[in-house]
C-alpha cells in the first residue's frame, strides 16, 4: 500500500481552504469524469483518486486525521490504541472511564476507494451524505465499448476469441456470418456497479477488413475470375476458389466478358442460421491473348477473314 498525497492529487497546498478544495475538485472532476472519458482507464483511475481526495479533504474530521498522521498513516491505528490505553489507565486511576475518539468504519465509505483510504478510514460501509450528495442509491456499472477487427475469412466461421479488458480476460464466441459494424452485448462484463448495483455491459463492435478476392454484400459473395479467350469461346471447365475450397465449373461456349455465374449456397454463412449461406456470384473476366507468335497471328487473320 502506497501513501497517497491527497493535496497533490488535487494540485493544492496543505493550507488550502474548503473553497480551494471544492474548486480544484470541480475542475479535475470535469476533466476526468468516467462518463466524459468512455473507455479511458487512465481517466477512470484519476477520477477515483480525485474523488477519494475530495472525500477526505472536504470533511474536516477526515482531513484532521489525514493531516495528523500523514505519511505515518500505517501506524495510525497502533498509535490511537496506545493513546486510548494510556487514557484508559489514567482514567481508571482517577475512578472514571474514558474513550478515545476512534473512527468507525461505518462513519466513512469504501466504494471504489484505494486500499490506503480503506486502511485509514475503514471500509465496507456505504457512502453517507457528503457535501449534499447522496450515494445510497445503487448504480449499475458503466457500460464498456470495445472494437474487434476480423478478416472476412475469420468472420465466416464460428470461433472463440480471448481478449483483455480492464485486466480481465474475456472469452467470447464469435458466430459465423457476423456483419461489419455489428455490435454484440456481453451482459455484466462492464464496470462493476456502485453500492452493490449490477455490473454494466460490454458492447463489442466488429469491424471486418475487406478481402482482396471476395467482396461481401449481405450474405452473398462476389468475385472476379479470369477466363482465357479459348475457353470463353469454345467452352470448357474452370477451377474456381470459393470460401469452402475449390470447385470445378463448366464454362459455356460463347461466355462473354463480364458475364456472371451464380453458385447457390457458396456465399457467406447466414448469421445464427446453421448450414444456411448466401450465393457466390462469379464475374468472368475474359483475357485476350498477348505476345502472339507469327503462327497465332496468321491463324487469327484467317479467323477474321472467315468471320467477314
Amino acid at each position: 500500500m502506497e501513501f497517497i498525497d491527497y493535496y497533490k492529487a488535487l494540485g493544492l497546498e496543505k493550507s488550502a481552504s474548503q473553497e480551494d478544495i471544492k474548486k480544484a475538485y470541480r475542475k479535475l472532476a470535469r476533466q476526468y469524469h468516467p462518463d466524459l472519458n468512455p473507455n479511458d482507464k487512465e481517466a477512470h483511475q484519476k477520477f477515483q483518486r480525485i474523488n477519494e481526495a475530495h472525500e477526505v479533504l472536504s470533511d474536516p474530521e477526515k482531513r484532521k486525521k489525514y493531516d495528523q498522521y500523514g505519511e505515518n498513516w500505517k501506524h495510525a491505528e497502533e498509535f490511537e490504541k496506545a493513546q486510548q490505553s494510556r487514557q484508559s489507565r489514567s482514567a481508571h486511576s482517577q475512578g472514571r472511564s474514558s474513550y478515545g475518539e476512534g473512527f468507525s468504519s461505518e462513519d466513512f465509505s469504501s466504494g471504489d476507494f484505494s486500499d490506503f483510504f480503506n486502511s485509514m478510514f475503514g471500509g465496507g460501509g456505504g457512502f453517507g451524505e457528503s457535501g449534499g450528495r447522496s450515494r445510497q442509491a445503487k448504480f449499475r456499472g458503466q457500460d464498456y465499448n470495445a472494437e474487434m477487427q476480423l478478416t472476412l475469412k475469420e468472420a465466416s466461421v464460428t470461433h472463440q476469441r480471448t481478449f483483455t479488458i480492464n485486466d480481465k480476460n474475456v472469452r467470447i464466441t464469435v458466430p459465423a456470418g457476423i456483419a461489419d459494424g455489428q455490435t454484440i452485448k456481453l451482459k455484466g462484463h462492464g464496470a462493476p456497479g456502485v453500492n452493490g448495483g449490477p455490473a454494466g455491459d460490454l458492447y463489442i463492435t466488429f469491424h471486418i477488413t475487406e478481402d482482396p478476392v471476395f467482396k461481401r454484400l449481405g450474405d452473398d459473395l462476389y468475385t472476379t475470375v479470369e477466363l482465357d479467350l479459348y475457353t470463353a469461346v469454345l467452352g470448357g471447365e474452370k477451377v474456381v476458389d470459393t470460401f469452402d475450397g475449390k470447385v470445378k465449373l463448366k464454362v459455356n461456349a460463347g461466355t462473354q466478358n463480364g458475364a456472371k455465374t451464380r453458385l447457390k449456397g457458396k456465399g457467406f454463412p447466414v448469421y445464427k442460421k446453421d448450414g444456411a449461406a448466401g450465393d457466390l456470384i462469379i464475374t468472368w473476366n475474359v483475357k485476350l491473348p498477348v505476345n502472339l507468335t507469327e503462327k497465332q497471328k496468321e491463324l487469327f487473320k484467317e479467323l477474321a477473314q472467315l468471320s467477314n
Binding site: H33, N51, R133
Partner: peptide
C-alpha cells in the same frame, strides 16, 4: 436506465 444513471452521475458529480 443506463442513460438515466449517466445523467444522474453527471448531475451529482459535476
Amino acid at each position: 436506465l443506463s442513460e438515466l444513471e449517466k445523467f444522474i452521475r453527471l448531475h451529482r458529480d459535476l
